[in-house]
Design a protein around this nucleic acid. Structure first.
Lengths: 136, 136
DNA sequence: GTCGTTGCAAACGGTTTGCACCGTC
DNA sequence: GACGGTGCAAACCGTTTGCAACGAC
């Protein structure tokens, strides 16, 4: 799976990986573009997309799809769960233990060869709750 | 939440709802367009999108985002889990019991006002596994 | 020197929207 | 008859891609 040897470690790729790992949020490709642009002002959005895609394929990084129109990226490639705010769209880590046995159960029930599972809780974050109260 | 009284039940809306409920798969908006077009050949794709959106907002139907670029719709609005094939993209229901207590646990841990949770298992479906063997 | 990678800009694909007409209530 | 819904086409927006120049190995 890892063909790490074939990957050239360009300044761009390096920087994208560093920036993503330096952060515990779950930036969109565009967020990443803005972050990396501080350090490499001439980088292009296409390069950001290409590298995030490649790093995710290598398993170095994780692409997460918690709903909403934009995909997000996570510097932590281990399986863990997420909270999503329906109002502001932010995605946070959720520190609860993994549900045990779901992948096995699903596999034996369906015949799928299971690769991963994801669990997303959606609701309204404390910040948005506060803002809602203020506004009303 | 339900303002059912304000909704006009047009031929289009009715037909979309009937078609979605007549099926246990999880069609995309475009799939729905094709299905409904059999009965209402002059319906437009925009109308399908608008109505699926409205029906989902009313809670009559569910919008599911199991990854992949297209959103899918589910005639069954009750919480249940899904299996997604990474290869052909199909999404099926997964008949395992709901994980109990996650929403409460997440709420008390994070302060979110929790609305829902979703669990998606991804892997390769039996059909694609078979095709892969044949091809190799 | 090779060949993977980049920047750029144009293309893409799914979804949304403005508008004038239509049909449900 | 009012006003929400429709068909149509154009706009939108996140993402992908073709291409010639570039730079890591």
């Amino acid at each position: 799976m890892l063909s790490e040897t074939m990957l050239r470690m360009t300044k761009q790729r390096q920087t994208i990986l560093e920036e993503l790992r330096s952060v515990t949020s779950h930036p969109t490709a565009d967020d990443m573009y803005e972050m990396v642009r501080q350090r490499l002002p001439r980088i292009s959005l296409g390069t950001v997309y290409r590298n995030l895609e490649i790093l995710a394929a290598e398993g170095v990084v994780k692409k997460i799809d918690a709903g909403g129109s934009k995909k997000r990226f996570d510097g932590n490639a281990e399986t863990h769960y997420h909270l999503r705010c329906l109002q502001c769209g932010k995605v946070e880590d959720l520190a609860i233990p993994l549900v045990s046995g779901v992948e096995e159960k699903a596999a034996s029930l369906s015949g799928y060869s299971v690769v991963a599972h994801s669990l997303v809780i959606s609701g309204v974050c404390p910040d948005c709750q506060k803002n809602n109260k203020k506004a009303s």
